[in-house]
Design a protein around this nucleic acid. Sequence first.
DNA 1: TCCGGATATTAGACAAAGTCCAGATTGCCG
DNA 2: CGGCAATCTGGACTTTGTCTAATATCCGGA
Lengths: 139, 139
Amino acid sequence: MARMHYTRDNMAGLLRSHDINPTHQRIEIAHALFSRQEHLSADQVMAIVNTRHSETSKATVYNTLKLFLEKGLVREVIVDPSKVFFDPNTSPHHHLYEVDTGRLSDIDAEQVQISGLPPLPAGMVTEGIDLIVRVRRKA
Amino acid sequence: MARMHYTRDNMAGLLRSHDINPTHQRIEIAHALFSRQEHLSADQVMAIVNTRHSETSKATVYNTLKLFLEKGLVREVIVDPSKVFFDPNTSPHHHLYEVDTGRLSDIDAEQVQISGLPPLPAGMVTEGIDLIVRVRRKA
DNA sequence: TCCGGATATTAGACAAAGTCCAGATTGCCG
DNA sequence: CGGCAATCTGGACTTTGTCTAATATCCGGA
Ligand SMILES: [Mn+2]
Ligand SMILES: [Mn+2]
Ligand SMILES: [Zn+2]
Ligand SMILES: [Zn+2]
């Protein structure tokens, strides 16, 4: 929070701080996500990064997003059966999904409490708890 | 609940009660889901239904699962970026997803409470609230 | 029973998202 | 400059799911 501006220049430091070698392509992809602070699909990232002139291949977009994921720079949001969204907000939070438009927005985790979850099966650890509120325009 | 046995004979009535014309293929597909009470992907349904000898086409499997969904006979569970699962349990409940094995199991909604959700945007209605606990084998 | 329309099923072409690979590029160090 | 590791790339490939036009099945009325 209280993050000011995500410029391309900032991106190099952000990447380094996550143990990611900052290359031109990686900076562009990070910038697409962080400057917008939106949930983007791989396809959308691809389109943004290649608006001016084609710069980054599909393989690199996918490789890079996966790398960001492994390094904990972004998180994955699985709400749509046809594509995954990448989320520059890695603090714990939930999602509101408008099923008819595909719009996806954040719900702050602070004020939401979830209680009464059963104990985990032995030898398992929680990787994350995803809460998705699916909404639709009233008929 | 307290459902005893899901035989093929029961399936016709179940389908009719959901306003679905019971055909041979639909009965087989419903039987695959309800007799197991498991979360199955379209591919898995296809494999089950066609074990003995090929009986049902891919198009019919997908058409039928979509029909079941529309008629409220099954629900969709979106946890895996690569495929959707179909769930014969339509009562409100949550899911535990073992990310490394792909195993998906139910969490009773009765004892879980979720509070503090923000008000919905105007003109929107909730279609459902999905809670997914992602777990992993302890390292 | 036979006919005709509505309903359901089918094979296979197609599309979209994502993966993989082998070859080119880049950046860096001596 | 030459070598090496890391990165990037086009394009083939895979998987999941959709679509379509042809066929098969079902059913009610003559
Ligand atoms: Mn650029
Ligand atoms: Mn059969
Ligand atoms: Zn988010
Ligand atoms: Zn379930």
